[in-house]
Design a protein around this nucleic acid. Sequence first.
DNA 1: TTGAAAGCGCTAACAC
DNA 2: GTGTTAGCGCTTTCAA
Lengths: 307, 307
Amino acid sequence: MSDVARAAGVSAATVSRALRGEPGVSDATRRYVTEVAKRMRYAIARDASSLAGGRRYAVAVLTADVGRGDLLAGAEGALRQAGYDVLLYVLRDAEARKRFFDELPLARRVDGVLALAVNLTDAEDAALTGLDVPVVAVWDDDLREALRLAVGHLTGSGHRDVALVLAGDIDESYDEVLVAQGLPVRPEWTLWSSSTVAGGEQVVDALLDGERLPSAVISTSGEVALGVFLRLRRDGRDVPGDVSIVSLEGTDLARAVGMTAVEGAWRERGEHAVEVLLARLRGEQDETEPPSVQLVVRGSTGPARDS
Amino acid sequence: MSDVARAAGVSAATVSRALRGEPGVSDATRRYVTEVAKRMRYAIARDASSLAGGRRYAVAVLTADVGRGDLLAGAEGALRQAGYDVLLYVLRDAEARKRFFDELPLARRVDGVLALAVNLTDAEDAALTGLDVPVVAVWDDDLREALRLAVGHLTGSGHRDVALVLAGDIDESYDEVLVAQGLPVRPEWTLWSSSTVAGGEQVVDALLDGERLPSAVISTSGEVALGVFLRLRRDGRDVPGDVSIVSLEGTDLARAVGMTAVEGAWRERGEHAVEVLLARLRGEQDETEPPSVQLVVRGSTGPARDS
DNA sequence: TTGAAAGCGCTAACAC
DNA sequence: GTGTTAGCGCTTTCAA
């Protein structure tokens, strides 16, 4: 930077102000400095900038699962455009997750935290809040809303025996949504799975071991839903004749295989989360609503067997 | 840090040396300082550290497509474990890609660059090399090898009319692999697609518009391969009776739907790439081989129609 | 083995 | 509108 200052015949402070768009520089000077900097291919040393200025121009993005590509891509694009670096943390499994929250390697390193598809426990949330930077989480509310839609659709078709498959580290309180809509909750019908097709297949195995099959399965993960579908079919069950399936993660994969799903505009959801975070960073509050989700009925759901 | 120094009754320099494992500190001092730092929940200010030390403890990870989750997850885990931050850059489409290489926002910000599933053009490669940090790219070689396996499998079953679907920004020279194995190359059978199921469906539409169908389709993307499969079937074509399909991206999705695919151990491939990069960072050269890929034959391929 | 001092490249506060 | 000065929190000489 001092090179640029010398070349432009101004002080380093002026270069700094000019390049950052700070007030207190004449238009002519700003233009000239900008041009010189460009010609010299000057790239700011962010470390020094952060050290002196206090801001870090970086946001940590936590995700449980890189599979939810659109959410992540949307957030990355929006952050990048706003001039923030994206520090990616993949909380792949319980162990990685625990290590992350134990060490919490974010202190003094980021201006904010975005938790995508993570579903923080209270303790984890507290740990992040202790960092003293804004934390924005996407997924939990979205998931609840999606679940409500799915349950509504199923009860409307006479389903009462609904199994819920949760992918990732998700707390149990989702059962409440079932209860709220008047459905019974059977412990053996609340299942956990990794977010993979194979996970979905295993879920079906567990279900088949039980007394009887539920008449419908809701899965938070599109891949799991597909696994459930494939495994059921391989076992000679008809979908939706014997079992209906709803995925809470609508992607074009769901569309292509004809899976009833909640479509969430995930890229837009990621961008919206960034808006909220940036507003918090500015000390404001973003009041806009996230993009709404909607249920798209396809061939994987039908009336309940006994209705 | 000076707090820790004061509390431990040593100088900041000693704290610095102790915490980083630098020589020149007695074991007793190191242990004590480490303990005090931990007790005080000291977190180093990376900015200051980088500024003073020259190293940035950060690696840029470029990816064309967050869909290849395992590759990314593998690289992220390995980098994190080695103490590096992961700066994620999603080169989503041609425009984002161009902007990235025009601005090249990495100067003075990272110690190295990892390009995952990107396939750099010569110009792009030169731009990165100009950054003066090690650059490691994964995908191109892997893809060529995978393609060789796929082509070998198909020609072994008598296929000669093979269409190639490239997902992402991939250069055309992959045709050479077909030529090298004695296959004819027809321009209308080299197709580009976005890495989505929908993209695969569109590819089939284009194929159906042509004079005749190829007897086999190779797709670099697992999702595209699935789209091809679904669309062909919806059109009344038999797979593999009419058309065989091979995916170069073997995931459990490929397994679940019975797709012949090249399984690449992507997570391990990502970790290996990090090994190579870290070695370069240490000024060494990693000579280990990347994990090998292998073809798994499933139901989506069979003998050629006319053989 | 340890400490003191200089300086990394910026920004912010204060002058002018 | 612009320059000067003083740090930001570390690492790295150089001395002790």
